[in-house]
């Protein structure tokens, strides 16, 4: 067997199932990354139940709910785009992904207004008002900024991933019989959604 043959073997080598398993394993690490934070949140909420309940009154349920709806809808558009590519409708699939990106942008703009309102009140860790908060409430806001901030970073990462998929769709590299990249981008996006599904009640709803 000569070398050329091997190299072409490498190139042909394609295993969608392996890609998917790899992606899921990566998602597990993401889950546990947030898992560590959820653990911290759970313990501190348990130690300071009243302070957490008080502090969460500061957050706007309306903002949170709108963002939850936006994110769930974006999950839907991603899922739909995958089933359309399977039906060999790349254009439709692309439009659905663009819609997802727009929803992601809406989420981020919303987040921006929410954060700036909180920062305006001096609730960012280290600011004057923050330092005067009762102990438990300060923890709440530290965690709020840390966790939603990390989540927002994941939205950005997921958007970039989806952007790559759109580019590949443009080039015709993602097709009705070869769409594992799009499926993996979808998995990532859904994971970001799942994490928000937990962040939302923990920060906004439990008073």
């Amino acid at each position: 067997m000569n070398m050329n043959q091997t190299i072409s073997d490498h190139a042909v080598h394609r295993d969608d199932e392996a890609s998917k398993i790899g992606m899921w394993l990566f998602l597990f690490t993401e889950l546990l990354l947030f898992g560590g934070l959820f653990l911290v949140y759970t313990i501190y909420r348990n130690l300071n139940p009243d302070a957490f309940a008080n502090a969460s009154q500061e957050l706007s349920v309306a903002f949170g709910t709108i963002n939850t709806v936006v994110l769930i809808t974006s999950s839907l558009t991603v899922a739909l785009s995958i089933s359309t590519i399977k039906d060999n409708k790349p254009k439709m699939a692309k439009n659905l992904l663009w819609l997802t990106l727009i929803l992601a942008a809406v989420f981020m703009v919303n987040k921006y207004f929410e954060w700036s309102a909180k920062i305006h009140h001096g609730l960012f860790p280290g600011m004057e008002h923050f330092m005067q908060l009762p102990p438990g409430e300060a923890l709440f806001f530290f965690l709020y900024f840390f966790m939603t901030g990390l989540h927002a970073l994941h939205i950005v990462a997921g958007s970039i991933f989806i952007g790559v998929v759109i580019a590949q769709l443009n080039k015709g590299k993602i097709k009705y019989d070869d769409y594992i990249l799009q499926e993996n981008a979808g998995l990532y996006w859904h994971l970001v959604d799942v994490i928000w599904i937990y962040l939302f009640p923990l920060f906004y709803l439990i008073h």
């Binding site: 899922a79 979808g186 959604d193 799942v194 599904i197």
Partner: peptide, 11 residues
């Protein structure tokens, strides 16, 4: 909700 997302959307 997470279960529904994982079970259907995430296949």
């Amino acid at each position: 909700k997470a279960f529904i997302v994982a079970y259907y959307f995430m296949h």
